[in-house]
Design a protein around this nucleic acid. Structure first.
Lengths: 221, 221
DNA sequence: AGGCTTAATGACCAAAAAGTCAGTTACGAA
DNA sequence: TTCGTAACTGACTTTTTGGTCATTAAGCCT
């Protein structure tokens, strides 16, 4: 092996240039490729080399657009997560029906957004590696979790005002309303292989648990 | 720097020997130190060097007792998780009271075991890095998750037989019963810093949601 | 006290992957 | 057509860390 900083001899049909200059399109492509690799290997486990290959560029190009690996991930959070929450929030205000109907509308969307899409990837990375990267966690909390909490709180406040939601510890921590959706996302990512449970079953159980509770109304007190 | 494979010159007060031979105590100590580091940095992020320092030994000593990093983690799962589940399972059989009473007894224990103790560390690593290490996931599913599912299924079957649990999608997927506990564990590990919510609030909301449901019994249908 | 077994050590090795930069080339402007 | 800019490349450097092994010494046995 005596080659040393020698570039490859092209010598082939020069139909399409091997390189393209596409300053505008690159960032989005790199983010997309990054999310796919992050989903596969987690944050620490992802090699920028692989992200580059998936995006069809060289590793160095990534550093043209992003400071480092962490910046890339943060950019992904910003681009993907923001819109999802806003979309759900929009139809809570001014919804005409009962709380039951509202929940039956919102919870499926929650599942769809959390289990489908890239959101579950981000969720997984936050859980698994958040403590190693406090900056990521803070950003994710502000941009996603906090908005989600506000949304749920608005639903509960509305339901209470209409006399449709019981006072009690559950209503005091609206966050728990979405616990089954989170569990579903975790299950799909983690134990799908060992014991497949379709997301629809989680969704059905979720709706049933929240709207009806587990026990028969009159049983024991 | 000209030292080369030269050991340090002791030349100090020879009160206690710097090394001890303690074949029996080491494994447990290494596991304990490992769990602490895993909790702090995740699986991939943990340096065996740090585990060794925490255990007060040299890195090489770890390899005297464990094949590699993965074996160490697996040993930790086996040692910690097994007993916890069995303990809970024991008082479900032959419990005399109502399902409501049983849940009010079981769910707090679930929280305690999941949020306190090392269990939440293992949970976090499974979620975050399980897909990178399928062997770990399979072991964890067999030793923990499956046993937990069986436990919940037994509770639901018992409650149905006594006419205390409603038929419905929630009862068909007993797994969802523990969703709020998992959410609590995740919250403590991940967003504690951003927005502290004490585990007791999750526990209270959990009990309330499972036993009473969210909506007022008669509202809208 | 001397010898022997083996637990324990930590310098070292090799692999992997993040990050750098001198050189290459697409492509718009002159 | 030529030229200059800067997008792009990928070999190289650096850092990090899992895993090895020759050497040391604790502690038992005789």
């Amino acid at each position: 092996m005596t080659k040393k900083s020698v570039t490859k001899p092209p010598a082939e049909t020069e139909t399409a240039p091997r390189r393209r200059r596409r300053k505008e399109a690159r960032p989005a492509e790199i983010i997309a490729a990054g999310m796919q690799e992050f989903a596969l290997r987690g944050f620490a486990g992802t090699r920028l080399e692989d992200v580059a290959r998936r995006a069809g560029i060289a590793k160095g190009t990534i550093y043209l657009y992003f400071e480092d690996k962490e910046s890339l991930f943060m950019a992904a959070v910003r681009e993907r997560v923001g819109p999802a929450i806003l979309e759900v929030a929009s139809f809570v205000d001014g919804f005409p029906g009962t709380t039951r109907e509202l929940l039956q509308l919102v919870i499926p969307v929650l599942h769809q957004r959390l289990v489908q899409s890239d959101l579950h990837t981000i969720l997984r990375i936050m859980i698994g590696e958040g403590s190693t990267f406090p900056g990521l966690t803070a950003l994710y909390y502000r941009e996603t979790v906090l908005r989600g909490r506000e949304l749920l709180e608005r639903i509960v406040a509305r339901g209470r005002a209409r006399g449709e939601i019981r006072d009690g510890a559950a209503a005091d921590l609206p966050l728990v309303i979405m616990a089954p959706a989170i569990m579903s996302a975790i299950w799909q990512m983690t134990f799908m292989r060992e014991a497949p449970i379709p997301p629809e079953r989680f969704l059905a159980a979720h709706l049933d648990l929240i709207t009806e509770g587990l026990l028969v109304p009159e049983a024991g007190r």
